[in-house]
Design a protein around this nucleic acid. Structure first.
Length: 394
DNA sequence: TCTGGGGTCCTAGGACCC
DNA sequence: TCTGGGGTCCTAGGACCC
């Protein structure tokens, strides 16, 4: 049976939610990311009114202010966006039994075999757009194709509020007419590499052998390019079990040079990560840290122990060890991050046995605190550094 | 205009084992 | 006594996505 996929993408999602919630923002340039004066912020989402001025995602806020000084600037309100996202994903579920959400504002719907029940894909897509608008007040762009990859590219071609259908049998043709810059999964570095190697069109890639592409671009990227320009169905994703991680990082308004401040930051980040791990009922034996210096060079270190990370303190201590190993004394730090990787569900191990002696009590106290905070987010309990006195380590 | 935060996946090199 | 080849696991760094 021929597959049918929808890729559904919410238009300028964060900015649109703000315009929905605040009628006075409608038809005006809205820039979500930060407010003037926020140092080192970037644009998260710009409304289409703001994009006319050249503002786009990932642009430093300072530049966006210069380009569009009269815009409405907002700090992001993730809770609200998450709430709205959930509502929309639920609506998608009424259209397809198989919805693969790939980010907060986009999803694939497997519509294979629904034609008899629902009607022609194009009509169903129109109906979906209408229902999203009626029920949530937001607009979406939809791509329809026989592969997820092509559906994804198609949805991007008609934004905002668009619908693009790539009929069966036209996949290869579509890919060969597509500007090389529209290949999804090929970023600035590989685009540059392509140019340098003499590839300017998807047809250029098509004309090259698989082994040749592998030699130039490496195994994965070479194979990817080969399949992409052919519209190959093997280019699926989302099925293989993913190794999970939870991370937290901060860019400081001003570079840190003080060890105590660095350590405090690591404590707070450790707390964030453990709080979320508790909420999601996962655990891990692997922690890693990330250090970004003033000049933007970034280094990381990671360690795996046989015991699970059992508490914020435990996490903090492991991170500090890594930090001491990696940090080049005297250099200013712009960003610090910590994470737990290779997460597993909590019920996959018998926890108590994997805890260090004496750790168990600490973990229990912490659990109680996490529970309290989860129930009453308004009561911010003093950050973990104060849970237990921590001596200076440097 | 100096460049966020949260993720996933790939690669290359070293350790270790047979 | 100057050294093979394969497999697997771990780590650091990089590319990419929204």
């Amino acid at each position: 049976m021929e597959h049918v996929y929808f890729h559904v993408d919410l238009d300028a999602f964060f900015a649109s939610v703000e315009q929905l919630d605040h009628p006075e923002y409608r038809n005006k340039p809205v820039i979500v990311g930060g407010i003037p004066g926020d140092r080192r912020s970037v644009v998260s989402t710009a409304s289409y009114e703001a994009r006319k001025y050249g503002v786009h995602s990932a642009m430093p806020l300072e530049k966006a202010i210069k380009l569009c000084p009269n815009a409405i600037f907002l700090r992001p309100n993730f809770h609200r966006y998450q709430e709205k996202s959930l509502q929309i994903m639920e609506l998608f579920n009424s259209f397809s039994p198989s919805v693969i959400q790939i980010s907060i504002d986009e999803a694939f719907l497997d519509m294979t075999g629904t034609q008899k029940l629902f009607g022609k894909p194009e009509e169903v897509a129109q109906r979906l757009k209408k229902e999203v608008k009626e029920e949530t007040g937001l607009t979406v762009s939809v791509g329809v194709a026989s592969t997820m990859y092509i559906a994804k590219i198609a949805s991007g071609l008609s934004k905002p509020n668009g619908l693009t259908v790539i009929p069966n049998g036209q996949e290869e043709d579509f890919m060969l007419k597509l500007p090389i810059t529209k290949l999804w999964g090929i970023g600035t570095k590989t685009q540059e590499h392509l140019k340098q190697a003499g590839f300017y069109t998807t047809q250029n890639i098509y004309n090259y052998s698989l082994s040749g592409l592998k030699t130039i671009f490496g195994n994965a990227t070479g194979t990817f390019l080969y399949n992409a320009v052919r519209g190959n169905k093997e280019l699926l994703f989302g099925e293989n079990p993913k190794s999970r991680s939870i991370s937290s990082e901060t860019t400081f308004d001003f570079d840190l040079t003080d060890l105590y401040a660095m350590e405090s930051a690591i404590m707070e980040l450790s707390y964030n990560v453990l709080f979320r791990m508790h909420k999601e009922q996962v655990h891990s034996c692997t922690v890693s840290i990330k250090i970004r210096y003033s000049d933007f060079t970034t280094v990381s270190a990671q360690s795996t122990e046989s015991r699970l990370v059992s508490s914020v303190d435990d996490m903090f201590n492991r991170c500090c060890k890594l930090f001491e190993k990696k940090y080049e004394k005297g250099r200013g730090i712009r960003l610090l991050g910590v994470s737990c990787e290779n997460l597993e569900d909590k019920d996959t191990h018998i926890q108590a046995e994997l805890f260090d002696f004496g750790e168990e009590k600490k973990a229990k106290v912490e659990k109680a605190i996490f529970e309290l905070e989860k129930k009453h987010p308004e009561i911010k309990i003093k950050k973990a550094r104060l849970l237990e006195s921590t001596q200076k380590r440097f």
